[in-house]
Simulated scan of single mutants.
Amino acid sequence: MAPRRPVLVTGGAGFIGCNLVDRLAAGGHDVLVLDSLARVGAESNLDWLRCRHPRRISVAIADIRDADALAQTTHDAVAVFHLAAQVAVTTSLAAPFEDFAVNALGTVTLLEALRRRAEKVPLILASTNKVYGDLSDITLALEDDAWRPVDPRLRRGIDESRPVSFHTPYGCSKGAADQYVLDWARSFGIPTTVLRMSCIYGTRQHGTEDQGWVAHFLLRARAGEPVTLYGDGRQVRDVLYIDDAVAAYLAAWRRIGSVAGRAFNLGGGPANAVSLRQMLAAIARLTGRPVVSRFAPWRPGDQRWFVTDTTRVTAALDLPQPLPWQQGLARLADAFAAEGRAAA
């Protein structure tokens, strides 16, 4: 019997990646994880996957910029989920060329490995809402400790007709990757699609100050440590629980024939829009003690408000209503309590 062809997940030991790999393996797929293990928590996520799916998971410890490794790992892949990335705006400002090499050059190297295949192999890219820039042209007003658009038409969120506008090196590198992936569908017929994510949170997330803010806030609160808010803490994001994000990725693969060459905004939508201060208040209620916060200057490129209009992605991928953020936060708190986790 010929060996089963794997699904390749780059960045498969990361937060979203390991949850996606877990769902794929549980669904009967063999999965090849490519990861450099550079992120905090990646090794423990990989151990978790190996323990849960010892016969389904294979691993290539390699950098996304390694053309030879990509040639080998894409050789038999039946599909590719591309999640490997440099994910922090702060890191991109400190090391912009490194950020470019990982996010932009690494993505093109992967696309070229697929283009050399005789078969048209699907690729789904994890992109970001940062491709829309800082949204400073949108007039906002304070409402219940949160910034909201004055224009009522924007209350449903930002849709895919919004022009991209790359701010910060991170926005540029991820935006370039986003556009290259879409163009490889146009220019070379590779079936690709792009999911521009808002804030994803949930289990297996090792939140830090630079990335994964919901988990970071909760872990700091559990440890009784203060949380630093950059800006005024009233900036708003729509948050999406990890199970719903993974369902979207799998649906994009299933429907690649109809969504190839398209980009979709993926987030929790208006019903799951919450400010940083509101999230801290909810965590305080959940833990039964106040969360101490301190303030620092705004960070470059930070959006005071971003909410996803989920109309197109919901219709195209036939997605269910996402988990309400209050329930997702409670699930995450229960998971951290069961693991005995607090801030590192």
Rank of each mutant, 00 (worst) to 15 (best):
A26K: 14
V78I: 12
S293I: 12
V307Q: 01
V131C: 06
I124L: 14
P169Q: 08
I256H: 02
V164H: 06
H53E: 12
P149N: 12
A245F: 01
N19Q: 15
V108Y: 06
R196K: 08
Q235T: 10
L182I: 12
P322S: 03
G340A: 06
R254Q: 14
D47V: 06
T10H: 01
A60L: 13
Q211C: 09
W213Y: 14
S187P: 02
S127I: 09
V40I: 14
W184H: 15
P324F: 05
D137T: 10
P3C: 07
P320I: 04
A296S: 10
D151R: 09
Y132A: 13
L219F: 07
P297N: 07
L329Y: 00
R55C: 10
I124F: 13
A85G: 08
T139E: 14
P3E: 07
F100T: 13
Y230L: 07
E143F: 11
L229K: 05
I242D: 00
L266V: 12
V40W: 15
L266M: 11
S136Q: 08
Q235L: 09
R220M: 09
T203P: 10
L93G: 09
D151H: 08
E43N: 06
R39T: 06
A13W: 00
R220K: 14
D144C: 07
A282E: 15
R262H: 12
W298A: 15
D30Y: 09
R4P: 00
G301R: 01
E209Y: 06
A42T: 04
S165A: 14
G189C: 09
T109F: 08
L93S: 05
L286G: 04
L140V: 11
R262Y: 07
D178M: 06
K120I: 08
D134R: 12
V108F: 10
R50L: 15
R115T: 12
A333S: 13
R254I: 02
S187H: 09
E112N: 13
Q86F: 02
G288M: 15
V259Y: 01
V121Q: 04
R50W: 07
K130D: 08
I124G: 01
F306G: 00
L70V: 11
V33A: 05
L250Q: 06
A85L: 04
P96H: 14
F264H: 05
P6A: 12
D68E: 11
L182M: 11
E143W: 11
R204G: 03
R148N: 05
